[in-house]
Design a binder for these strands. Structure first.
Length: 561
RNA sequence: UGGGCCGUCGUCUAAUGGUAGGACCCUGGCCUUUGACGCCAGUUGUAGAGGUUCGAAUCCUCUCGGCCCAGCCA
């Protein structure tokens, strides 16, 4: 088995790392990092990166740092730092002592900048933002050199120090690298290293009035932490030569950056801006709305860390732009939940059933299996009595050909209970079915008939007087189309929002064992799907249940045809 | 059309010059006290054209198509 798993092909990044180790590069050391900017909540795309970076470290006996890329104080906040740490931990990864912040390196970075100025590799530019853009040229035309480009090192140094002292207003000057204004790679056209920002930083407060750009911080941060393999998404391939230029000019440890494709998921959006818009425009309740693809949203929905990690493993790592079918995510979820979730019975759309030949006010308890996939989960008792609720969908007055469930005159099994036969259909003045009268066969207690009689269907139920009434929220995909972004006719992604993404059911009847249900436990409501207690809406009130994902429903497919 | 990256079943992803395989989805069937799960079977693919080679998804050339870059964001 071990040999087999060794033979299993590695993705291109793991192949590179394996080769580096074989060549004793970095003395065989492997060090990665997960470097989020604390300006928002983590989503499933970040989970891919987390699983990759922490996963690689685990597999190759290396380390993985958690580093906050907090170089822009205008967007960052400790609230995000905390949620990010919570999410990474929840996914099951541990950075141990290896918690870093780019802001820890502000002094190092400043010193690096001074070195480059002294070496005439950087200069203070006093053009304004519009002028800099104009001088940068275009994709097909080279840029022009700034009139301040040949400013002396002494003058630049003086200005840079005064920028640091807060002597100038935002935008008055920037520090630029002196590289090549005619490069085909726009990132090399004298990129900005530092800008003046008179903003309080969530960690350094008002210590600094200049802040390094990401491009001048990330590579050096990797270098200072001696990251061997700096894994990032494809859009960072363009500035890679710049990072390499900085480390070379500075003569510091050079990490190797490797880019991979970011995750796209069907029927959702994954850009921070768009997720923000969904929250701000009230299309969802919050960042952790159970319909959101954020880690916190998925967690609240009932996703498990195991499922998310398994998903990340299944999708692989390549450089190809791709859209992963959300069905694969759901598959990974169901695979985990099928093994681990406790089975219970709950009726979402109740229809009353009276067992006419069952003795009036008596009741009894029947044995039910908690998890057929896991014997150690044991059994429980479920109460049975004369009046029950069954699912409205489980009865049809005029059943079509392949409908196996209850109808007038037909016998079905109540799971773990008895065979019942429908004898009467009670309707109101509008002709709606309000109640069913059935008879039960006492010989079939537990669900089997001594005469070997078979029924075609087994349906779930709850005892009316023993059941608990609870609110259940049904979630569906947020968008009606697979790729809501980048519509060919230029429609905004919000035009594809699914108006049915949330259905609230107030009057659901659940078996009494669910009275103690606590958040964080996954249940399978038999024949319906997986559900979990909502963490937010269940505080100081009766628990509310979220439907995590439905079960496969063969009847729904037949019916649909 | 400057630079960078990428094209393998519907969707992901293997095959690193030697039988194009797996997963998801889908379709049948079996099993079933969940129309679940499981099991079995099946459909479908190397963007195109040349070239090199005994042999090409893989190497070369060209064509076509897609993604990213002109923030004092990351």
């Amino acid at each position: 088995m071990e040999q087999e798993s060794n033979k299993k092909s590695l993705d291109f990044i793991r192949a590179i790392i394996a080769e580096d180790i074989a060549n004793n590069k970095n003395e065989g050391r492997v060090a990665t990092r997960f470097p989020p900017e604390p300006n928002g909540y983590l989503h499933i795309g970040h989970a891919k990166s987390i699983c990759l970076n922490f996963g690689v470290a685990e597999e190759f006996g290396g380390t993985c740092n958690l580093r906050f890329d907090d170089t822009n104080p205008t967007k960052e906040d400790t609230e995000y730092v905390e949620s990010i740490m919570e999410d990474v931990k929840w996914l099951g990864y541990d950075w141990g002592e290896r918690l870093y912040y780019a802001s820890d390196y502000f002094q190092n970075l400043y010193d690096f900048a001074v070195m480059l100025i002294k070496g005439e590799k950087a200069y203070v530019d006093s053009l304004n933002a519009d002028e800099i853009r104009e001088y940068r040229g275009t994709l097909s035309e080279p840029g022009r050199e700034s009139p301040f480009r040949e400013r002396s090192a002494k003058e630049s140094l003086d200005l840079f120090e005064r920028m640091k002292e807060g002597e100038f207003e935002e935008g008055a000057h920037v520090l630029r690298a002196k590289i090549d204004m005619s490069s085909g790679n726009l990132n090399m056209r004298d990129p900005i290293m530092y800008r003046i920002l008179k903003q309080s930083h969530h960690r350094t407060g008002d210590t600094w009035s200049i802040y390094p750009m990401y491009d001048f911080a990330h590579g050096q941060s990797d270098s200072l932490e001696e990251i061997t393999h700096s894994l990032c998404t494809l859009e960072f391939a363009d500035p890679r030569p710049l990072y390499d230029w900085f480390t070379e000019q500075l003569g510091i440890y050079a990490q190797r950056q490797i880019e991979f494709a970011r995750l796209n998921l069907s029927y959702t959006v994954l850009s921070k801006r768009k997720l923000m818009q969904l929250v701000q425009d009230g299309h969802v309740s919050s960042w952790d709305d159970p319909r959101m693809p954020t880690v916190s949203g998925l967690r609240r929905r009932g996703y498990t860390p195991v499922a998310i990690r398994s998903f990340c493993e299944k999708i692989g790592v390549t450089k190809q732009d791709s859209v992963i079918d959300v069905a694969l995510l759901e598959h990974a979820l169901k695979e985990d939940l099928n093994k681990s979730a406790l089975r219970v019975m709950g009726v979402l759309n109740p229809l009353k059933v009276v067992i006419t030949n069952y003795p009036g006010d008596s009741s009894e308890e029947l044995d039910a299996v908690n998890n057929p996939e896991d014997e150690s989960a044991g059994k429980r008792k479920v109460p049975f009595s004369k009046e029950l609720y069954i699912e409205r969908d489980d009865f049809m007055e005029e059943p079509p050909k392949k409908f196996y469930r209850l109808s007038l005159g037909r016998e079905v099994r109540l799971r773990y209970a008895y065979f019942i036969t429908c004898t009467d259909v009670i309707k109101n003045e509008d002709g709606e079915v309000t109640e069913l009268h059935c008879t039960y066969d006492p010989q079939t207690r537990g669900g089997n008939s001594p005469d070997g009689r078979k029924v075609k269907a087994t349906i779930h139920w709850v005892s009316a007087k023993h059941s608990i009434k609870r609110e259940v929220r049904l979630y569906d995909r947020l968008f009606t189309v697979a790729e809501p972004e980048g519509d060919k006719e230029g429609k905004d992604f919000t035009e594809f929002l699914n108006p049915q993404s949330l259905t609230v059911l107030k009057d659901c009847y659940l078996e009494p064992s669910l009275a103690d249900a606590t958040p964080g436990v996954n249940y399978q409501f038999e024949r319906l799907g997986y559900f979990t207690v909502d963490t937010i809406s269940s505080k100081n009130t009766k628990p509310v249940f979220n439907r995590t994902v439905t079960l496969r429903d063969a009847w729904a497919k037949v019916k649909g045809k």
